[in-house]
Design a protein around this nucleic acid. Structure first.
Lengths: 146, 146
DNA sequence: TTGTAATTGATAATGATTATCATTTGCAAT
DNA sequence: ATTGCAAATGATAATCATTATCAATTACAA
């Protein structure tokens, strides 16, 4: 089982890109984070270790991380892209609380299978999908009831 | 069965808003369109009938149309919001071709039911969902095979 | 070492959408 | 009609996340 670092390095080599301190630092910070993270949040973390780092570099490295297959972009529709681990992290969708923003990773293999069938019934080859379930979590329902 | 125009007018009255020529014209143009439409596309259409109309007004009226329950926003993730009819138009999700951008409205009641169950299993009350299936349509598969 | 290509950080640009604001409009009460 | 007031409009500036640009720096290869 290759480490994420190895995968990243291999990707750089394959693309004739260089392993720079900035790239390593940004990857490390991303890997340390368990939850999904925005480019800005990642920039804030990395800036503490190296204040000279540029915001554009964070965006650039995040793209590399995605291309290397280590992260996925998730879009909750609030105008900010989030990035989450996807290596050794099985596919899932998201359940988002409209009240507090809490998210839960969900996965239902029956839904996945049905999605594929729906696509095929229209002669589409399903490559990808996004599914976001928006609701109110138990805590928020309690609060709104007073 | 109320007409869309009636529903819009009732919404305006309820909110103490006025029925202006611009609002009526933009609503009409939106209703004539069968497929989803962007604010810019709608602006281009309306501008032909009244070149003095402002782009901001189109955005404002689109919001009213959504609030009145006549349109839904759909976000294919390309940075532009699209608006589609939702009055007398049963709920559906979207199948989008990554090659040519063609979209198909899809609906699977089993998936819908499973979504609700998944949410409930995490003590969420499902309010809404988005599901986008991305793939390659038959035409595009043919073309890419040469 | 020297040439070349990649990388960086700063900054400008982008592009969709929203906010601002002075002006215009429409209605309500005189 | 006339006045007053709130809503509406169009033009334009602002916003905000993300991308592009570009000069300066870095790292590898011959």
């Amino acid at each position: 089982m290759k480490s994420e670092r190895e995968i990243f390095d291999n990707y750089l080599i394959k693309k004739n890109l260089r392993e720079t301190p900035q790239r390593v630092m940004i990857l490390d910070a991303f890997l340390k984070r368990e939850e999904h993270i925005t480019a800005e949040q990642l920039y804030d973390i990395v800036k503490k270790r190296d204040p000279s780092i540029g915001q554009a570099t964070v965006y650039r490295v995040l793209r590399l991380i995605v291309e290397a297959g280590l992260a996925l972009e998730v879009d909750f529709g609030d105008g900010v892209m989030r990035y989450e681990h996807c290596y050794n992290h099985p596919h899932h969708d998201h359940l988002v609380c409209k009240g507090c923003g809490k998210t839960v990773e969900v996965m239902d293999s029956v839904i996945e299978e049905l999605q594929k069938r729906v696509a095929e019934s229209f002669d589409f080859e399903l490559m990808d999908h996004e599914m976001y379930l928006y609701g109110n979590c138990g805590d928020c329902r309690k609060k709104s009831r007073g």
